[in-house]
Simulated assay, not measured.
Amino acid sequence: MKNIYLLLAIIGAVIPYLFYIQFMQVEGLNFSLFITQIFANKAASGFTADVLLATVVFWCFIFQRAKSSSAPKPLVFFVLSCTVGLSCALPAYLYANEN
């Protein structure tokens, strides 16, 4: 499973960034437009809310697990989820957590 988690983490980093790069090529670093577009309609808003809530649950989980000495340090995965996304951070955490 460890290799599958690593592959999923890589895919989870590459695919979102393909879209982010396309956005930045057209719009530049227009953060307010980016936020406007991820909430552009009811479907996008629902999907965005779902991912944001799942990310908060992930944060709660990794910081709670950090109290265990065997758990990976959560800061890297917190930053990864904020800069790349849950699609990369979650499988990366699972990869780091595998024995």
Rank of each mutant, 00 (worst) to 15 (best):
V79A: 00
Y5T: 07
L80Q: 03
I35S: 12
P16S: 05
N30H: 08
F77S: 03
A89E: 03
Q22L: 08
S87M: 10
Q37L: 06
A54W: 12
Y17I: 12
K73G: 14
I35W: 05
G85W: 00
L90D: 05
L53I: 13
L52P: 09
F47D: 15
V84R: 02
A43S: 14
L90G: 07
S69L: 10
Y20S: 15
S32D: 14
I4G: 05
A13R: 00
F34V: 11
G28M: 01
A43N: 14
N41C: 06
L52S: 10
M1L: 05
I21V: 08
F19Q: 11
A44S: 10
T83C: 13
T83Y: 14
S81T: 06
K42Q: 14
L6D: 13
I11D: 08
Q64V: 15
V57E: 10
I62A: 04
F63A: 03
P91R: 01
L90V: 03
Y17N: 10
P72F: 02
Y5K: 06
V57F: 10
T48C: 01
L94S: 04
Q22Y: 13
V51W: 06
P91C: 00
A49N: 07
C88Q: 05
A9Y: 01
A71H: 04
Y93K: 00
V51T: 08
F58H: 04
T48R: 05
T55L: 03
A96K: 03
Y5Q: 08
G46F: 09
D50W: 07
V57P: 11
I38N: 13
V79R: 06
L75H: 07
A66Y: 04
F39M: 07
A71S: 01
Q37A: 05
G28T: 04
F23N: 03
F39N: 14
L75K: 13
L7I: 14
S32H: 11
I11Y: 09
T36V: 15
Q64D: 12
N97G: 09
T55H: 09
L33T: 11
I62N: 11
V56K: 07
T83H: 13
G12N: 11
Y5G: 10
K73F: 06
A66P: 06
A89V: 04
F63R: 03
F19I: 14
S45K: 06
G28V: 01
W59I: 02
Q64S: 15
F78E: 08
A54L: 12
C82Q: 12
L90N: 09
N30M: 05
V79N: 00
I15E: 15
I10H: 04
Y93S: 03
L8E: 10
C82K: 08
N30D: 09
F31T: 15
A43K: 10
L86C: 01
W59R: 01
K73N: 13
L7D: 13
E27N: 13
N99Q: 04
F34S: 07
N99C: 00
L86V: 04
G85H: 00
V14Q: 04
F61L: 04
A96P: 01
Y5H: 13
M1P: 11
V14G: 04
V26K: 15
P16R: 04
I11P: 06
V84T: 04
